[in-house]
Design a protein around this nucleic acid. Structure first.
Lengths: 190, 190
DNA sequence: TAATAGTGTTAGCATTTACTAACAGTTAGT
DNA sequence: ACTAACTGTTAGTAAATGCTAACACTATTA
């Protein structure tokens, strides 16, 4: 039926739409630029999503899934030898910002007066935060209240540090060695 | 002469121009919106600055000065009783993101392919970073190499945490108590 | 007073941009 | 084969936006 086909098509296009947003940000990713990236005409995109905002919302969701999947895969790959949190630190300290998923967030933050966009960004941050919290808790193997508090604030801090690493890379503020120092495991009092 | 008057006018308008950019971001701050905020017509702005980009660059510089001045004032106010870094922590843990100076940065990050914008953002980050590094160094009262390394990476981390606090406030991700925990002095191993 | 420079306002231009109508060709079901 | 739905393309529209020309008015200077 109609909806089935649309669903398929959306699934096929979404990575490309998301890529356009991730490279250009919300405003600069004009509908024509997105269509170009997808190798189709604008009218086709508008048959798959109601408007540009809907394309953006779908892209944020997609990229969130994407990041968590990559982390998950990376962790399970080396689960035998290392603790998850350490794997994540090692991975991110070298790969952070490689995917270029960040522009979409910064540009989205400028559009928060659109409720849909605000909501999807909240969901994204909360999902990533929850994932990190769980990992920190399992690292310490403890669920007492004060540890939970520590895990939650630490998780937010880690996301912040990651953001700064991203900005630093984007603006060429510092090099690889600084990036590694910023994500040194010592900052967790390990 | 001509330039003198222009200089005066610019100085008078700049805080309002900056406010428009800070509230709306680069793209949403249309020249008409900026002019509105200033209570003048667009043509007048274009007699003071070459183009919108120049207005933005001037605004970023202005806001950087502004932040550093506020910090400086806050520190000198309580210098007798506390160490500068602690004052800054206390101050920021309650006031962070109050000035709303952040939108201008996020929106600027989407325009980095404009060399002027990239440059002014780099300068801004480097100035703030240097300021924090000096403060951390003076806190530890030591200039050995490893301490410098620590101070530099810690300063970037602090800016990152501040950024996350800002985003958290903007997106209503967490409340005041979390903000305080995130900027707890313990994270400096004090 | 006359000439020059500066200020404020209007109107508008050229371009971009999100979005759509409509048509031609194709596929699919009966 | 015939109808109906879908796909791809063209062309275009209405609004927004960065920016400017040009005019009337005022202040300044010679």
């Amino acid at each position: 039926m109609k909806t089935d086909k649309r669903y398929e098509k959306r699934k096929e296009m979404l990575p490309l739409v998301a890529k356009a947003f991730a490279c250009l940000g919300y405003r600069r990713a004009t509908t024509s630029a997105i269509a170009n990236e997808c190798g189709v005409k604008e009218a086709i995109l508008y048959r798959l999503w109601e408007d540009k905002k809907a394309m953006f919302v779908a892209s944020v969701k997609y990229l969130t899934d994407n990041i968590l999947e990559i982390w998950e895969r990376q962790i399970s790959k080396t689960l035998q030898e290392n603790k998850p949190l350490e794997v994540l630190f090692d991975y991110e300290s070298t790969h952070f910002a490689e995917l270029g998923h960040y522009m979409i967030i910064f540009s989205g933050l400028n559009e928060v007066d659109e409720p849909d966009i605000k909501k999807v960004l909240q969901e994204m941050y909360n999902r990533i935060h929850r994932y990190l919290v769980d990992m920190i808790l399992s690292y310490y193997g403890n669920n007492k209240q004060d540890v939970t508090d520590f895990a939650e604030s630490t998780a937010w801090r880690l996301i912040g540090i990651g953001t700064m690493i991203t900005i630093g890379k984007h603006l060429e503020l510092f090099g690889d060695s600084m990036r590694e120092k910023m994500l040194d495991k010592n900052i967790l009092n390990l």
